[in-house]
């Protein structure tokens, strides 16, 4: 193991540590821009790593790779910076499983409440319509449409009960796929 090999190993270790620290910042960094910078560091470390590899094995054909990587790193960070938007605090944080489950349960509960409310309102409107016609009979447009409207509300409430919720396809299946 020559001195050059030892040097190469030390360099590789330093580069790995540097890239790992940058990835830690990418995970932690509170905003989009922090993560952009951290990934820029990772790209530059990759360039250094590829150059190290080319130096060890004396390969000249990986050099165009370096050119492309340096351009890609730059274009990536400039694009993200250009389209950076105002992020509310705390939204960039990765949530734990419990928090995700709690949020899902809360969302489902709100939707069930809204559905129940809609059904109650519809039922009240139908009952009002059923009670109203005998009073307004002579003034209304005639007897024919009214009996026709009677069966329709019955089936409407039936379909509302059985209709699958378009957003949630059932509780247990969702839990399994997560």
């Amino acid at each position: 193991m020559s001195v050059f090999d030892v040097v190469v190993l030390v360099c590789a270790a330093l580069l790995t540590v540097g890239a790992t620290l940058a990835v830690i910042r990418a995970e932690r960094g509170p905003s989009m821009l922090d993560r952009t910078i951290a990934l820029d560091i990772v790209v530059t470390t990759v360039i250094a790593g590829v150059a190290l590899y080319a130096a060890v094995f004396r390969r000249a054909d990986v050099v165009p790779l370096l050119v492309v990587l340096s351009l890609v790193g730059f274009v990536g960070s400039v694009t993200v910076a250009r389209f950076a938007a105002v992020e509310p605090e705390g939204e960039g944080r990765v949530r734990t499983r419990e928090e995700v489950a709690a949020e899902e349960a809360e969302k489902r509960r709100l939707e069930q409440e809204e559905l129940a409310e809609r059904r109650a309102r519809r039922r009240a409107a139908l009952e009002a319509a059923r009670d109203a016609p005998p009073v307004e009979g002579p003034g209304a447009d005639g007897g024919t449409p009214e009996p026709a409207t009677e069966p329709v509300p019955e089936s409407a409430t039936d379909t509302v009960e059985d209709e699958p919720d378009p957003e949630h396809h059932g509780g247990p299946a969702d839990e399994e796929t997560r």
Partner: peptide, 9 residues
């Protein structure tokens, strides 16, 4: 490169 990573953190 190591200094850059340490600084970032």
């Amino acid at each position: 490169a190591l200094a850059a990573g340490v600084g970032a953190v």
